[in-house]
Design a protein around this nucleic acid. Structure first.
Length: 410
DNA sequence: CTGTCATTAGTCAGACAG
DNA sequence: ATTACTGTCTGACTAATG
C-alpha cells in the first residue's frame, strides 16, 4: 500500500548506474551497491545533554506541550521539571536510554510515562537546537561521502557504492566525523540496499556499526519481527500475525500467492520481496516538497458553537503560519485543505483545488473556510489543521501579462 | 448513436514514519 | 484514561474527457 510505490520505483538498472561504483557486477547483472543508513542515537535527548551535561546518566525525556524550561535557583543549581509534576496533554518525543530502561518510549502519553517514571527529568523540545545539530552532522558526513538522502532530522541514507574503502573503515570514519562535529554518537549499518541498511542500523544501538550482506538474511534478518521492516506498521503487523506470520523468516517462507490474496497484488509482491532482502530503491539526494501544513491540538476540546470565536482565531492563525511557510520556501499553492480531529479522535479532511495558486493568508483562509462549510459540526473538536498542496514554485509563477498568458489572449 | 474503455484530476481516508 | 506535529504515499471512488 503506502510502500509498494516507493519500492517499485526504478526497478531497472540503467547503464549509467551500472558503470558507477566499483564496477563489480553480480552474476545476475545487478551492480553491487553499498548503502549506509545512519541514525543518530536518542537524538533530541542527546542534544539536550550537550546543553545540560549535569543530567548525563539520568532518565530524561523530551516532550510535552507546555513544558517549562529549566530555571536557575539562588545557589546556581538548575531546577528541572519532573515527569510527575506535568499536567495536561502531550506525548514523549524522545527519551534517554536510561528512561527507556524504565519503559518510557517516544509517542507515549505523558500521563502514562509519569506513572512509570515519576522522577524522570522532563525537558521542553528545542527544535532550533536539533536543526542546528542536524545540519552539523549531515555536513560532517558530506565531507566524506556526499551522496546523501535526507530522511528527516536525525537520519540519512548514504550511497557508498563509489567508495573503494572497506565498509568498516568508511563506517568508522563517518562515525568519528559526526562525533567530532557534534559531540554526538550515531549508529550506522552498511548493506546492499536501503531496506537492510535501515534494519541494520537498529541492531546495535547506541554507537553501533553493523555490516550486513545478503547472505546474512537467514541468521540476522529472518529471526526479526515483521514490524522491523520499514513500511510494515501496526496494521500490517496485526494482519500478518492473524495469518500466523510473526517473523521476517516466516514471511519469507509464505507463498507470494497467499500474501497477494491477503494484501492485494501490490503490497503482496512487495512483502514477498522485502522478506528476501530485495530492494532496488535508489538513494534520492534531491526532492521538492509536496505539501506544507500546520495543525494544532487545543488545550481543551472546543465546541463548534460555544467556542466559535476561539476556533476562528486559531483557524486564521494557522492560515497565517502556512502563508509564512509558503513564503519562506518560495511556493504558492493551488489546493487548500483542512483537517479536524474530534474529541473521539476521528479525523475528517476536506480540500479544495482553486483555479489559480494562492499564497496569502487571506486567500488561504477563504478557501479553508469553504472546506469547513462542508463538514457537519456537531461534536467537540480536538485539533484543527490547514494544509497547502499542489505547490507551485513562485519563480515559475507567471503574471497576467507574461508571454505565455498572451498566447491565449488575442 | 450508444456503450465501453483508458486516462487524468480531484477528493477523502488511512497507513506509515521520523 | 491517554494518544504531537509534519509530511509522503496509496487505494477507492467520482467526474470529466476523448
Amino acid at each position: 500500500m503506502a510502500i509498494s510505490g516507493r519500492l517499485s520505483a526504478n526497478t531497472n538498472c540503467s547503464n549509467d548506474q551500472r558503470s558507477k561504483g566499483l564496477g563489480v557486477i553480480a552474476p545476475l547483472g545487478q551492480p553491487v551497491r553499498r548503502i549506509a543508513h545512519l541514525d543518530m542515537d536518542a537524538f533530541f535527548a542527546s542534544v539536550e545533554l550537550l546543553t545540560f551535561p549535569d543530567l548525563k546518566g539520568q532518565a530524561v525525556v523530551v516532550g510535552g506541550r507546555r513544558t517549562p524550561a529549566p530555571t536557575i535557583d539562588a545557589s546556581e543549581a538548575r531546577q528541572y521539571t519532573r515527569l510527575k509534576e506535568y499536567v495536561g496533554r502531550g506525548v514523549i518525543t524522545t527519551s534517554t536510554y536510561e528512561a527507556r530502561a524504565l519503559g518510557v518510549f517516544s509517542g507515549m502519553g505523558l500521563m502514562k510515562a509519569a506513572a512509570l517514571a515519576p522522577d524522570a527529568i522532563l525537558l521542553p523540545a528545542n527544535f532550533e537546537a536539533y536543526r542546528h545539530y542536524s545540519r552539523l552532522f549531515k555536513a560532517a558526513v558530506a565531507t566524506i561521502a556526499p551522496h546523501i538522502e535526507d530522511r528527516g532530522i536525525d537520519e540519512i541514507y548514504i550511497d557508498l557504492s563509489a567508495h573503494p574503502e572497506p565498509p568498516e573503515v568508511l563506517g568508522a570514519r563517518i562515525k568519528s566525523a559526526v562525533k567530532a562535529a557534534t559531540g554526538l554518537s550515531c549508529s550506522i549499518a552498511i548493506a546492499p540496499n536501503k531496506l537492510l541498511a535501515k534494519i541494520g542500523s537498529d541492531l546495535d544501538k547506541p554507537d553501533g556499526l553493523t555490516l550486513i550482506e545478503i547472505g546474512d538474511m537467514p541468521s540476522r534478518i529472518w529471526p526479526l519481527a515483521v514490524s522491523k521492516i520499514n513500511g510494515v506498521g501496526p496494521k500490517a503487523s496485526a494482519r500478518l500475525e492473524k495469518m500466523g506470520i510473526l517473523t521476517i523468516g516466516q514471511l519469507a517462507a509464505t507463498p507470494v500467492e497467499r500474501l497477494i490474496r491477503h494484501f492485494g497484488s501490490s503490497m503482496g509482491t512487495w512483502l514477498g520481496r522485502v522478506a528476501q532482502g530485495i530492494d532496488t530503491r535508489p538513494v534520492i539526494t534531491e526532492s521538492t516538497p509536496k505539501s506544507i501544513s500546520r495543525e494544532s491540538t487545543f488545550e481543551r476540546d472546543l465546541h463548534p458553537q460555544n467556542d466559535k470565536h476561539e476556533l476562528s482565531g486559531i483557524f486564521t492563525d494557522l492560515c497565517k503560519r502556512v502563508e509564512s511557510d509558503l513564503e519562506r520556501k518560495g511556493y504558492a499553492s493551488r489546493t487548500i485543505g483542512i483537517k479536524l480531529r474530534f474529541a473521539d479522535f476521528s479525523i475528517v479532511t476536506r480540500d479544495l483545488t482553486l483555479p489559480a495558486p494562492v499564497m496569502e493568508a487571506l486567500d488561504i483562509r477563504r478557501a479553508a473556510g469553504e472546506c469547513l462549510k462542508r463538514i457537519t459540526l456537531d461534536r467537540r473538536i480536538r485539533l484543527l489543521g490547514v494544509r497547502a498542496s499542489t505547490l507551485v514554485s513562485r519563480d515559475a509563477l507567471m503574471t497576467v501579462d507574461s508571454p505565455v498568458q498572451q498566447k491565449f489572449d488575442f
